[in-house]
Design a binder for these strands. Structure first.
Lengths: 152, 152
DNA sequence: CTTCATGTAACTTTATATGTTACATAATGG
DNA sequence: CCATTATGTAACATATAAAGTTACATGAAG
């Protein structure tokens, strides 16, 4: 999986899960995402803590959606991943003694903060249900979208 | 120097240079920034290409500002660094064959694009002269700010 | 022609996301 | 019971990119 694509990856998994009844094993999901089952479990753990999915062990076990898709936004999913930093750039030092650095930080922080706020706001406007609806439109005529037939 | 803090670092250097007449050797700047002279040269190279600074070799050589600070914005400086990616997150794949991935990408791309545009816009509103003016206010009573007395 | 500065390629280090292995835990079916 | 199948998780390995370092070439000043 490409760098820093957890959000993208998790959404992919959730959307697939919304297309078929579960449960899905970590191995199935991992194959579809071209990654490792452990990675799936790691990423899904955050979602489980917030009650968006459930997991069960043993025969017939695996992952299932456990939330109202119209109530969960992309921002919620992002938060479930631990709210990793959104921006690729940051300040050299956070609490500088140098006044020059303080002046630089003040200017950059303002811009960075605004951009982060906008991004979070946008993510908060999109629910998983909206994504799923968009997907159904894209699927069009095709009746089923089986995860086992996944190709990148 | 912390990760991905080139913009912050370069601005720091430029602001120091605006406080005193030059020239400044890479070594002097490096000490103030607690980094290596070669790193300074590498980063300043982009600025030189765009004519924002000049460098001279030999005795009495070093770096000098070569632009009207009121005409250069933080966005210009960012561009001089090669416009590195602003966001820490991206899509798993750029041109996916999977329709699920396409739906996810479409949603995320919109949000990502808007945030990047806002950030660039904000950076474009701030000139080096404005930063320098802000710095002078912060310096207040202090008459001089000698780079050789730099502390982080 | 020595000294001091930048220019730059090549290499090393470090940070972090991602991937993998190994093993513990729990649920199910015989 | 107990073999099978699943998740849970720690520990380790790999990959990538930023940052730092070394080495040496180039050029200007005294």
């Amino acid at each position: 999986m490409k760098r820093n694509s957890r959000l993208s990856g998790v959404l992919h998994v959730l959307l697939h899960m919304a297309q078929q009844p579960g449960p899905f094993t970590s191995e199935t999901l991992a194959k579809a995402m071209d990654t490792n089952p452990v990675v799936i479990r790691r990423v899904m753990a955050g979602l489980r803590e917030l009650g968006y999915v459930r997991s069960e062990k043993g025969h017939g076990g695996g992952w299932r959606l456990a939330c109202d898709l119209s109530k969960v936004t992309l921002r919620d999913v992002y938060a479930a991943l631990g709210s990793p930093s959104l921006l690729a750039m940051g300040n050299r030092t956070e609490s500088p003694g140098c006044l020059v650095e303080q002046a630089v930080n003040a200017a950059l922080d303002q811009a960075f903060h605004d951009a982060e706020a906008l991004l979070l706001s946008r993510l908060g406007e999109v629910t998983l249900a909206m994504l799923s609806e968009d997907l159904r439109k894209r699927l069009g005529s095709r009746r089923i979208h089986d995860i086992s037939a996944h190709r990148a």
